[in-house]
Amino acid sequence: MVRRNELMKTSIDSLLLFLLSQQPMYGYQIIKELEGRSQGYFIFKEGTLYPALHRLERVGLLIGGWQTLPNGRQRRYYYITEKGRSILVEKRAQWQDFFAAMNLIIQPVKT
């Protein structure tokens, strides 16, 4: 379980960029979306998610914006930037190469 958490922490930036490239989302929505789409594999805590979102915003890969709901509450939505999209292209290629290489190793050798 500890090793799984470490894997998740290294992949969170990519996961957030992938997700937000499809539509803007707010923090709670991101957690539920990741959990739902991964069928329960990616369960991120607030202490992992929000620092990652704020870090990506500070380096310009995401931008946050407040939206006021009908009940007066405010939600912070995150949008991917152009810089974020170009980084995403690189990361997508890196992950595809990584998975291809891993599959070559993990697959049992056919005799």
Binding site: K45, E46, G47, T48, Y50, P51, A52, H54, R55, R58
Partner: peptide, 17 residues
Amino acid sequence: GLLGSAKMLARQIYEAH
């Protein structure tokens, strides 16, 4: 309980900023 320690969460957010 699910949020965890306020101090720990604050520290993690602090490190991002």
